[in-house]
Design a protein around this nucleic acid. Structure first.
Lengths: 157, 157
DNA sequence: GGGATTATTGAAAATCATTTTCGCTATTCA
DNA sequence: TGAATAGCGAAAATGATTTTCAATAATCCC
């Protein structure tokens, strides 16, 4: 009854989430679906913090607690549905987990916090060769470049 | 009186710290020197958290407050003496800042937390070209590879 | 489908790392 | 040296995240 006919068929995606959750002994809940929906509605590679998720759900009239959000994020990271990002700023961000070779990386403005994504296959290559060289089994790579964005440069020295 | 003759002349380094601090209006204090000493005594590229700094100073009989440690770390990051790392684990790590082209990166075991450093000039190249392409002025790059280290692999599935 | 089992939820309290406040001390500079 | 003030330590405050606990709801089994 919550299915909006204007959107692509989500019941299939919902089933997918349920299947993935149940396979590992987790339960499907509407809260988890709503959180995942936010990521799927956003541009691929868009990252969200717990705070932003909470606010966006509030905005669309959904009441949800922070504990539920944090628990859902952890579960989805464990199931490889989401990826946790350490961008800086003292909080964590999450985004849809993409196939390894499609991973993108981040360019962060240390002044205003703006984040740009970019892709570069070199990272995956270096990541796999480095981890292989030390016997690590590779999970993922994050390349973060810190700088000052064009808008902030005039504001500083 | 704390000068160990087996080590290179530290009085010169102390003067250096004083000079760098005073140049920007900060004051030289013994606490700041002791914190910087910890980094200089460690292997280049070894990273420390505020907690570890506090513990190491306690171990060598120095009493220092966390507020002082955090303030000193911020000042030294601002002065480019140290670099702040976002490795994961919900806390920040710091290490001696090295010249840009010598930057090293990290391979982290998500199971036991072990961290290995590695160098790869490709990162700096990609970092500069990406930031240049978007008009960012580059400050630094962090490439972090997450995986499972050889010791932990047998312990998991 | 119905009921037992138990994962999940929300609210509030608890943690943990980090930051701030404030009165006192110590560094810098004239 | 002495005035001005940055920095110190201790304790309180903050902000993000985690945990606790009683109530709820998803899954499983019959």
């Amino acid at each position: 009854m919550e299915h909006d006919p204007a959107l692509p068929d989500l019941s299939q995606e919902a089933d997918q989430l349920k299947t993935v959750l149940n396979k590992e002994g987790f339960r499907f809940t509407s809260q988890r679906q709503k959180i995942l929906d936010l990521f799927q509605a956003a541009a691929l590679g868009h990252h969200l913090s717990a705070e932003e998720i909470h606010q966006q759900l509030l905005d669309q009239g959904e009441k949800i607690s922070f504990s539920t959000i944090y628990r859902a994020l952890h579960v989805m990271v464990r199931l490889s549905l989401l990826q946790e990002l350490e961008l800086a700023e003292g909080r964590k961000y999450y985004e849809l987990n993409t196939p390894f070779m499609d991973q993108h990386h981040h360019l962060v403005c240390v002044h205003c916090g703006a984040v740009k994504e970019f892709e570069d296959a070199t990272m995956a290559q270096v990541g796999s060769s480095e981890s292989a060289a030390r016997g690590f089994s590779l999970l993922n790579c994050q390349f973060t470049v810190y700088g000052i964005c064009p808008s902030c440069q005039p504001l500083l020295g």
